Amino acid sequence: MENRREAIRGVAGCVVAAAGGAAGMLAWAPYARRGIFGFEGESEWDVVWFGLPVMTLGGIAAGITLFTLVQGKWRQALGAGVLLTALIGFGVVFDVLAGPPPNCDPC
């Protein structure tokens, strides 16, 4: 009976992590449109190369953090929270969701 309960928890954890990753991708989508099809055809591929992994991994880390908090595993939740904080810090420092700068030079 205990093995079955552990298996169900494992599957639930995978589902929560996958849902978090999908939520991260959905949150990233508006930035992708602005970065790939930017202002006056200016593309910013850093939004894809850096923004997509950071948002996806951030969604996964947020899902795992919530899942471990619900289970009452505080140390594991703290570790996942540290990972989530590091991803947020990386995203802010390197401005991974910045689109192309607008070109305001007079012709």
Rank of each mutant, 00 (worst) to 15 (best):
F39G: 06
W45S: 12
L69M: 12
V47K: 07
R33L: 08
L52F: 13
F37N: 12
G58I: 07
T56V: 15
G63H: 06
E40Q: 15
R34C: 05
G59N: 04
E40C: 13
L57S: 08
M55E: 10
V48Q: 00
A32E: 01
A61Q: 01
G63P: 12
R34Y: 00
A32C: 13
P30E: 08
D46L: 14
S43N: 10
A32Q: 02
L57N: 08
G63S: 10
L52M: 14
W49M: 11
P53E: 06
E44Y: 03
E44N: 14
G59L: 02
T56Q: 00
D46Y: 13
T65S: 11
E40F: 07
V70P: 06
A62M: 08
G58K: 10
P53K: 07
T68S: 09
I36N: 10
I36S: 08
D46R: 15
A62L: 14
V47Y: 01
M55W: 08
L66K: 02
V54Y: 00
V47T: 14
L52S: 05
E44G: 00
E42V: 14
G41C: 07
T56M: 13
Y31E: 03
G41F: 01
L66V: 15
E44R: 14
V70A: 15
P53W: 05
L52W: 11
G35E: 03
L69F: 04
R33E: 06
L66E: 00
I36Y: 09
V54L: 06
G63Y: 00
F39M: 02
F37D: 12
T68G: 01
V48P: 05
F67I: 00
I64T: 08
G63T: 05
L57G: 10
G59R: 03
S43F: 04
E44Q: 15
F50R: 15
A62N: 04
L52N: 05
W49A: 14
G38A: 09
A32H: 01
R34V: 12
I64H: 01
G35C: 11
Q71Y: 00
P30G: 11
V47A: 04
G38R: 04
W49I: 11
V54T: 14
T65G: 02
V54R: 08
P30S: 11
V48H: 09
T65A: 13
W49C: 00
D46G: 15
I60M: 13
T68E: 13
F37E: 09
A32Y: 11
P53D: 04
L69Q: 09
I36G: 08
E40V: 12
A62Q: 04
L66T: 12
I36F: 07
T68K: 10
V70C: 11
F39C: 04
E42I: 10
G51P: 10
V48G: 08
G41M: 06
Y31W: 14
W45T: 10
V54P: 01
G59Q: 02
T56Y: 05
Q71M: 13
L66F: 11
V54E: 00
P30R: 12
G59I: 03
A61N: 02
I64P: 02
L66D: 00
